[in-house]
Design a protein around this nucleic acid. Sequence first.
DNA 1: GTCGTTATTATGTGCAGACATATTCACATC
DNA 2: GATGTGAATATGTCTGCACATAATAACGAC
Lengths: 229, 229
Amino acid sequence: MKVSGWEDIREEVLRRIRARDWAPGAAIPTEEALAGEFGVARATVNRALRELAEEGVLERRRKAGTRVALHPVRKATLDIPVTRLEIEGRGQRYGYRLLAEDRDEPPPAIASRLGLAKGAALLHLTALHLADGRPVLLEDRWLNPEVLGRAAPDFHAVSANEWLLTHVPYTTGDIGFSAANASAAEARLLEVAEGAALFVIDRTTWEGERPITCVRLAHAPGYRMQTMV
Amino acid sequence: MKVSGWEDIREEVLRRIRARDWAPGAAIPTEEALAGEFGVARATVNRALRELAEEGVLERRRKAGTRVALHPVRKATLDIPVTRLEIEGRGQRYGYRLLAEDRDEPPPAIASRLGLAKGAALLHLTALHLADGRPVLLEDRWLNPEVLGRAAPDFHAVSANEWLLTHVPYTTGDIGFSAANASAAEARLLEVAEGAALFVIDRTTWEGERPITCVRLAHAPGYRMQTMV
DNA sequence: GTCGTTATTATGTGCAGACATATTCACATC
DNA sequence: GATGTGAATATGTCTGCACATAATAACGAC
């Protein structure tokens, strides 16, 4: 068994955990001890254990040492897709239609999520994304008009998502996933039966302290988000 | 502006990207150059840039250098929760009821996902998870009986998920999220209207090459998975 | 025994130097 | 022009050392 390189060490540690050499909740040897055993520098062991801790397999605390996680909260990393690229990546033709665009006061729920004063007006966009001509995603977006600058984009030509991606990228925010029955209006636009189960992504983004946008993406039935764990 | 420590460097790089000092798609200085500018070791810059690359903000290739991601595929990391802990974490009382347990040949879709030969029998469990006495999650699980060993657990007393977590932890697998309308049977068990939108998590897990389990978790309406980006 | 202080210790992070490795680019060849 | 080859180079990783930091454990005062 050749152990060299932090990935080998990561695998060996994982093997020992799975083999119950190191039981859940129990402490494992110190970095120094493992470095000695494997014949590598402590930094190399540190790298391996740090990765495993980030994955939720190990729990590490200064002085207390490293132990095998008792309740390994598995962490899945999802790629949040750009709709156009996702559709084109499946070999389908991407289409986009702006349905409505006005300036309006958002409902209280949206305003408070963005941390806006009452009465502030936002740009309200509704749009449909199509794959091979069939509607697959209904977008309902509230957008802070401040971010548009003087060169207000034409959201008929370019989707808000893509415009934001190139003009206000690298934002922070939160994202939520849920299921919802299609309302009558949603059903009509997405060309599905009323009450159909939609996969809904809610996303709110900021750039630093400045609110950018709050969007609800309702995916037509059949949509599935997948990842490896 | 004091820049020391890899987190400071990470922030400063992010600031420059947001400020458009470094445009999307453009290459940024080499690690060596940045190390010189910030007065730190290259390893420190490397750590900062590596983290940003893992987040999808930067793209790095040997020799080609580091560039700002053109289509920053945002990556969200979700904690995959243990149902009991999730419910108790909300301050609710957790309940669990095993509805059915038999040994059966799984449907072809399940068998092929687990990579099983035709005719292999699996343990089939159906269970309901409750919060404050109200059903919130319907579990439909196929389980490889090999993993049970001689001490076959009593799945009336302990949920399969928790038993697996303590007896076959640290597995790999894939996980998918989707929305589905409640079937008549599902609606009855979850005490919701037929056709209600359920948030469904499909999960398949292996331990190395050995298939462990394949489960469908149908969450009652109101369920929401959330994370920061 | 309880409480507060101090010493100890494992991890977290840093530095400088080195070699490995994957690409790219330039050049020579066909 | 197309293709293969080799040098150049930026990132990837490792080592060995050092100090910082946080949390525990040991100790003493009461």
